[in-house]
């Protein structure tokens, strides 16, 4: 049973969190140079949720995520290059440049997708769990969703059905305090959204979302419970969105003090501090250098990859023969 990550597992989580941080910072820099296209939703400061939660999953398990899903993509096993190439609309992107950074998927890896309709990932994961139950598969589906999505009507419908049918789904609430610019306490009638789980007869737990080990333990336990057929559960990971809603966010609604306080509890720092007990400094520095180098190389390769060619999608042809 997955409960506490081994040192090797934690080191791998740390390495992936570093890669995601370098990815987000690299995107920020390229956005300033005007080299990105469309809005980019960065997850700086939230890496522990997406990486550690997906670290408990097995290859046949599935995950849905939000429009801010870079940590989930990398956490569930996608390589950097297809993710970055997709963000830059390249032919070599995970979805051949058709999806963009909000809708990345890798069906083979079980990443069944980012979703930019807030709340839509919740029934999506629930539907996958329904499929697993009907087919008698030993897998689980995971939904990483935000505090904004928790306020949608479809969240209620999906969680009710998940609990009603004891579907193997884990709801990982990435509580980053904001729905676009509106703080959670202006959107939600309750501070701790996971208390709603009780209303569905579903267990829940609140954890420090910046502590990868805490996220791993809680999500791991809930996933194993679901895998045993005991039904869904919710983990509320308290974290903070450091870099605004998207690259188009003008800011001004997050206080400096608040940002500074959360930066002091950066998930990278928390993991590194924990790892120093078991891993020597040289190894950590080596891992850190490797993560940076890998991201740099992936950016360089992806940016020189070719752009795709447009073609009409025949599957969408409204006529029964080609016209």
């Amino acid at each position: 049973m997955k409960n506490t990550p081994s040192v090797e597992e934690h080191l791998e989580i740390y390495r992936k969190m570093l890669m995601v941080r370098h990815l987000e910072e690299g995107l920020g820099a390229l956005h300033k140079e005007g080299r990105t296209r469309g809005p980019i939703h960065r997850c700086d400061g939230q890496e522990a949720v997406g990486i550690a939660a997906t670290a408990v999953l097995e290859a046949g398990d599935k995950v849905t995520t939000t429009h801010r899903g870079h940590a989930v993509y990398i956490g569930k096993g996608m390589e950097l290059r297809p993710v970055i190439a997709e963000i830059f609309g390249r032919e070599t992107g995970a979805c051949a440049g058709r999806a963009g950074h909000m809708l990345v998927a890798d069906v083979e890896k079980g990443v069944i997708g980012g979703n930019a309709i807030v709340g839509a990932g919740i029934p999506a994961a629930t539907g996958m769990a329904l499929s697993m139950q009907v087919m008698g598969q030993p897998n689980v589906a995971m939904c990483v969703f935000g505090d904004g999505a928790a306020q949608t009507g479809i969240c209620h419908e999906a969680m009710n059905m998940a609990a009603l049918w004891k579907l193997p789904v884990v709801f990982v609430l990435e509580h980053n305090q904001f729905g676009l610019t509106v703080p959670s306490d202006v959107q939600s009638s309750v501070k701790d959204i996971s208390i709603r789980a009780a209303g569905y007869g579903m267990p829940s737990e609140i954890v420090d979302g910046n502590d990868a080990v805490a996220v791993y333990r809680a999500v791991g336990a809930m996933a194993e419970r679901a895998r045993r057929g005991e039904g869904p559960g919710m983990i509320e990971c308290k974290t903070y969105r450091l870099e605004g809603f998207s690259t188009s966010d003008m800011g001004g609604y997050q206080t400096k003090e608040e940002i500074a306080a959360w930066k002091a509890r950066d998930p990278l720092k928390i993991s590194r501090d924990a790892l120093t007990a078991d891993v020597d400094e040289a190894k950590l520095v080596e891992v850190e250098a490797k993560a940076k180098a890998d991201v740099d190389e992936a950016f360089a390769t992806a940016l020189s990859d070719p752009m795709p060619q447009f073609a009409i999608d025949e599957a969408c042809n409204p006529y029964s023969e080609a016209h």
Binding site: A124, T126, G127, M128, E157, A158, M161
Partner: peptide
């Protein structure tokens, strides 16, 4: 339950997963 919105969304992903 009377949950057309989620049911339809679940049909989509159940169909995508086997």
């Amino acid at each position: 339950p009377i949950s057309e919105q989620a049911m339809t969304a679940m049909a989509v992903t159940a169909a995508m997963t086997g």
